[in-house]
Design a protein around this nucleic acid. Structure first.
Lengths: 202, 202
DNA sequence: CGTGATCAATCAAGCGATTGACCGAATGCG
DNA sequence: CGCATTCGGTCAATCGCTTGATTGATCACG
């Protein structure tokens, strides 16, 4: 991620990448140690057990996501254009740091009850932020929560796996055309879905 | 799934459930054997190695999904209402057999190259079916592919993990109210997104 | 008695975790 | 100053356990 830190930070970076790519069960502490250029015992020295490491990774991911979201929220105006700018910022974040949506998708798929508190702790406050912002703009009678979830699911889906076209090509975050298509599709979907059609997106 | 078959079918049922819930790496052959009431060697006798079992599970899941989709497609008319009926059928399928979206979400998150052909083999033909159907109905200038992917991502997301509301409650496929809200949200999203607004959904 | 199905037992490899030793840079002290 | 001590960081080695896979024996039944 940031590059050449040492010790605990490098371990967290490497673990984030591996947990995102391979999932919790698919990643071994030895893989993480090797990728970080450290002995497995050194990793344990810095971050404790595998579960502690995972929790630390998830917390860091949440903090980054929250910072991105709050940073974007501080800049927008509360009108249709502002909501679409917020959407753009979220897409930017998910595409520039795809490990983070991947971590969450893995988390959602697992029903390991000992980390089930992560959603309550991390996802819900972000939902509140976004839904509150949308409420100021969106007309009554629109199901904001489900609209937000559609944005989350779609952006995570595109960011993690991309799209399989009917021509058999797989396109994703590294393909600028696909990104542009995804972005304008999402702008249109959100604008229509939230009833912001007086100011239709490009 | 179907109940009290024996041998290979029961193994595939159990494996489907476990792979969907815990992922490939999170599921051991011993878990599958125990859940099927068989010895681990008997499982191997019927289905071969773990990888073969996984491939058989994915093939069966695909056949079920394809059958559901083609069955629904055979019944619809090619107009706005038909597209929405197709959407309903897909939602029904994903909610009644949530292991199947879960299997696919796990598959998409993993980049194990030795099973990367599964998308090409299984997902693409289904995409073709749906996109072709939509093309007969949807006005020009609309990005059908991305609209379909938004439906897939959202339906899989809701079917596998449900929704976390701002009130902290987690609601999903087992909550009739949440299902109703999700369904009408998706009908509305698809109708607006595909420009079928002359026949707006309930 | 032969055939398909099942099992307990076993294998090498990998897992998460821990131990005790080692190293070099601070730190303490005579 | 010079030497001993402490301490954060690192490592090879090891522990007990689980993994995927295989073997050879056993069972039921036609």
């Amino acid at each position: 991620m940031t590059g050449n830190e040492s010790g605990r930070e490098r371990i967290l970076d490497v673990a984030t990448r591996l947990f995102a790519a391979l999932g919790y069960d698919g990643t071994s502490t030895r893989m993480i140690a090797e990728a970080a250029g450290l002995n497995v015992a050194t990793v344990a020295y810095h971050v404790g057990g595998k579960r502690d490491l995972y929790l630390a990774v998830m917390e860091r991911a949440h903090l980054a996501e929250r910072a991105a979201l709050e940073g974007a929220l501080a800049k927008i105006t509360f009108d249709a254009e502002g909501i679409l700018t917020l959407l753009d910022a979220y897409i930017d974040f998910c595409l520039s740091r795809p490990e983070i949506p991947a971590l969450w998708m893995h988390r959602w798929l697992s029903d390991a009850s000992d980390v089930a508190h992560l959603e309550e702790q991390y996802v819900r406050p972000l939902m509140e932020i976004v839904v509150d912002a949308a409420r100021k703009v969106v007309p009554d009678g629109i199901d904001i929560e489900y609209a937000v979830w559609t944005v989350i699911w779609s952006t995570h889906g595109f960011g993690c796996g991309g799209v399989l076209s009917v021509d058999g090509q797989r396109r994703g975050r590294e393909d600028p055309d696909a990104v542009a298509r995804f972005r304008s599709h999402m702008r249109r979907t959100v604008a229509l879905g939230l009833g912001l059609t007086d100011r239709l997106a490009g």
